[in-house]
Nucleic acid binder design. Structure first.
Lengths: 210, 210
DNA sequence: ATCTTTTTGTTATAAAAATAACAATATTGA
DNA sequence: TCAATATTGTTATTTTTATAACAAAAAGAT
């Protein structure tokens, strides 16, 4: 299949989670595009267009079969084989992410954490165990980890990214406020809390009231 | 001034932080567009265009005066009066954000935290004190808090957002995985870690190698 | 049975964002 | 002094994303 637009991938992830919650809460088996849209504060057209992208079709006028749709989304955005993930930096943020991550994501598994602090090594949150940085290469290889979530302090970020890339990781989700530089075969996603907050501040002040 | 594109606002926030770090590290006073671009993994045109948006001009061929540029960015994205922010939910994530927030942001102040857990009430991280939810209305009014960072557990998110809006908050940065619904005069920014991670997973698998 | 309504799927259009192209100008060096 | 070069500022173009418009089909109403 052709590669999907970035924004569509983001929304598909959200559709899936929203649909799972919706089933759990209301027990319905079908949903209209405008209903799903309302749950996400977007438009029904947007939903239908995204669903068109992944090639799922329902019977007209009956809404989408939720179970099927969840499955099709999974076939598209999940990889066939499970992907293993590690958290690097096991402070408050690393632990928070581990907690957020709990839940049934059959194709995406948080399998290890790393920290330089000997006091943290050996600790566990949600069955995710913390190893020393020295053992990173070994543990990454052993568990076939391909994505790292980087939550170390600012001063350690660049060096840690370098080490991670040496271990053979393929993607980094960067929570630090440092601008990382990675080879072009590594997928880098920046996740910048301060920028998000400054953006909220700007639009709270400047946005036309509506 | 005309309202800026969303992406430009995001980058301006990043330019400012990057420039501050750059000055601290290298002590230079000027920077070329392509140098700033390289630090952020974007193009020089992008930088120049954003700088054009905010109306700053340098002398051609000499690069930008860093100190001036930082100041102009501040004039644009900061509000003239300081904006006060609260963290709602003082678990691992709330505390992590408080730590990230430390640093000199003269116009954006994290002034309070709230939590329902009596054990957390009264605790402090980085001089940010935690109050009980019951005192929210009072503390928000007293400190003129206009933005809330929502980091409570999933099941509490919707109700907490409702209460926050009643207290008169104007913007919410939502870290929970719940789809919130807010009146149109409230600026809502979603910050979804799981979606970001699923996106990395998708592009690690599907992106053309480059 | 036929008309009306509702909802999907798709094509067409618009808006936002990024990139390219290039004129203008300062600097360097012959 | 004058040509070559480097860099900014801006307009033009392309790409990406979102919205609008609407045909097709199912369901219900008359």
């Amino acid at each position: 299949m052709k590669i999907l637009p970035e924004k569509t991938v983001e929304r598909l992830s959200q559709y899936r989670r929203t649909l799972n919650n919706y089933v759990a809460e209301y027990g319905k088996s079908r949903i209209y595009s405008h209903e799903l849209a309302a749950l996400l504060n977007i438009t029904a057209v947007q939903v239908r267009r995204d669903i068109m992208f992944i090639g799922y079709t329902s019977v007209q006028r009956k809404g989408y079969n939720i179970k099927d749709l969840i499955q099709v989304i999974g076939n598209i955005i999940d990889s066939p084989d499970s992907i293993n993930v590690a958290v690097v930096g096991y402070g408050n943020l690393g632990k928070a992410i581990t907690t957020y991550f709990a839940g049934n994501r059959p194709k995406l598994k948080l399998v290890a954490a790393f920290d330089i602090d000997p006091k943290k090594v050996g600790s566990e949150v949600n069955n995710v165990k913390c190893y020393s940085i020295e053992r990173m290469r070994e543990i990454v290889a052993l568990n076939d980890i391909s994505i790292a979530i980087l939550t170390v302090p600012t001063h350690a970020a660049a060096e840690m990214a370098k080490v991670l890339i040496q271990t053979g990781i393929k993607g980094i989700l960067n929570f630090t406020t440092v601008n990382l530089h990675v080879p072009s075969n590594i997928y880098l996603e920046e996740y910048d809390m301060i920028t998000s907050l400054e953006k909220v501040a700007y639009f709270v002040k400047h946005r036309p009231l509506g």
